[in-house]
């Protein structure tokens, strides 16, 4: 018979309490709230499917859903692809000290508010901004970058790229160098070494990096609003719109639950893929 050990259980208690108070509790409240009704700008507890029916039968909800899903997926792919050469260089071509400094430099952007960085991008991307001035000097443009899907994408990458580089760098740095040398000794080309040794060995970190990029950009409000011009609105903007008009927090809860369910599905699928053993 397995003996119950008190020691590890006690150490788990803070985590369980934290998760219960700040994740499970609010989540359950939000699920309950999605069945409530708003009367005279006050939420009334109820068990009514009106909010679900209303939101899920509206074309604009699904338009916003697919736009959000597409943009988050694109950001995850682009961030992973853009980050990989940098992470590779940091992991394999820098000394440990230089790598530490590089990681520090990647953390520094987080010292500044994300909103402030987005406002800086507004200036840079404007038609009268410095980037278009440079393009103009080279005989191109001006290009419309602000208030567009491109602008939103720049914002998403501002948010996620440093994090993806850090996660990828940690993952690549922990690869056993003997495996790479063995591949070379066995005559593998650099491309084969990369695709058949390095990427599979760093798979977990690479996927986790992409998942973080997806999660952060899927729920982001700032980039699509301030750089994308709400054109078209994403789910986070839809939540704001729904609460602004008529104080429909229960309907906003429906949108939020759909977002959480999507994130759970994507995260579990990705983690499953990351840890799946090769047959």
């Amino acid at each position: 018979m397995r003996k119950l050990s008190l020691y590890p259980f006690v150490w788990r208690i803070p985590l369980m309490v934290w998760q219960g108070l700040f994740f499970v509790g609010p989540l359950l409240l939000m699920v309950a709230m999605s069945f409530w009704l708003v009367q005279n700008y006050r939420m009334q507890p109820d068990f009514n499917f009106t909010n679900w029916e209303r939101m899920l039968t509206r074309g604009y909800f699904w338009d916003a859903y697919w736009v959000t899903l597409w943009r988050a997926s694109l950001t995850a792919v682009l961030a992973s692809l853009i980050a990989f050469p940098a992470s590779y260089g940091l992991a394999f071509h820098l000394s440990a000290t230089a790598r530490r400094w590089a990681i520090f430099c990647l953390i520094v952007p987080f010292f500044t508010s994300y909103l402030v960085r987005i406002y800086a991008w507004q200036v840079l991307l404007a038609e009268s901004g410095p980037l278009n001035a440079l393009f103009g000097n080279a005989g191109f443009g001006p290009f419309t970058m602000l208030n567009s899907g491109f602008g939103a994408l720049v914002g998403y990458l501002t948010l996620v790229l440093p994090l993806v580089v850090i996660l990828q760098t940690f993952s690549l740095s922990s690869i056993d160098r003997n495996l790479i040398e063995a591949a070379w000794n066995l005559g593998a080309s650099p491309r084969e070494t990369l695709l058949r040794v390095i990427v599979p060995a760093a798979k977990v970190g690479l996927i986790i990096g992409a998942v973080f990029a997806f999660i952060l950009s899927f729920g982001d409000f700032v980039a699509p609003f301030y750089l994308g011009g709400s054109k078209p609105p994403t789910l986070s903007i839809l939540i704001i719109d729904t609460t602004k008009s008529g104080q429909q927090w229960p309907r906003a809860a429906v949108v939020a639950i759909m977002m959480i369910v999507t994130l759970f599905v994507v995260a579990f699928a990705a983690v499953g893929a990351a840890y799946r053993k090769r047959k």
Binding site: A126, E127, S128, N147, F225, G229, S230
Partner: peptide, 19 residues
């Protein structure tokens, strides 16, 4: 014709920077 939908701050900056 529409370039975006803006709150108070976005309306200010959109008109000011000629966007």
């Amino acid at each position: 014709q529409v370039g975006g939908y803006f709150d108070y701050g976005g309306t200010f900056s959109g008109l000011k920077n000629g966007e």
